[in-house]
Amino acid sequence: MTLSTTTKRILAVITFGVLGLIYLPLLVVVANSVNPSQSMTWPPRGVTFEWWERAAQSAGAREALVTSLQVAAIATGIALVLGTLLAIALQRYSFFGKHSVNLLVILPIALPGVVTGIALNNGFRGILGIDLSLWTIVIAHATFCIVTVFNNVQARLRRMGTSLEDASADLGAGVFTTFRLITLPQLRSALLAGGMLAFALSFDEIIVTTFTAGGGANTLPIWILNNMFRPNQAPVVNVVAVVLILFSIVPVWLAQRLSADVEPAR
């Protein structure tokens, strides 16, 4: 099919126009973090770092940041172990119910967030009768973070093939030795990429978190949500939003670099 130059131009304008629009609101938030106007009127008249200073001094935001880091770190740790075990089981063995297990891993992020949230909330409070705390957030986050580790490790295992592991076993290495010396080193960058994606996913999550957070344990997204509607806090929220952008984009960018670096070498 031959497209006329005009059609191509129109398509290019739509594509670049829309992609530009996708980044525009984020840039506005970044610019507003130094906007002197408290109600963030556009365009900014001047540059101020007052909000950054106030955000750095905000005890609530700092506590929330620490909570978020703790939750993301523990949830990522659990997801790394469970996701890797699952990926090995599903990629290296065939068994009855394999497809159901595969579906089960994806389910927590495939179902609407509200459903996952209320199911866990009801499970913790209504059925088990335990109070919501930092740990209920961790359990919820680990559950939907497993899939990112699982996907990365499974893709790597598929590319690796089994020849090196078979050779290791033929040379007499035991199951654990082979895993430690052959499988794990090859998985390292996949684990790092999956772990960083899991970390970013957990750091950023809000819907399931609103249903499972309690006992004064506020993550950064929840802190933002609670303070967004207070006019005098709005500029500080804006600064925290910029921090959140950095925390979610940087790990993902690194993770993509990691998977990209390895791919040509297969």
Partner: peptide, 16 residues
């Protein structure tokens, strides 16, 4: 890339 930028921040940016 914007897929991974914080969901909440993206909504907040539209509020702004």
């Amino acid at each position: 890339t914007p897929l991974w930028a914080s969901y909440l921040v993206k909504v907040f940016s539209w509020r702004v």
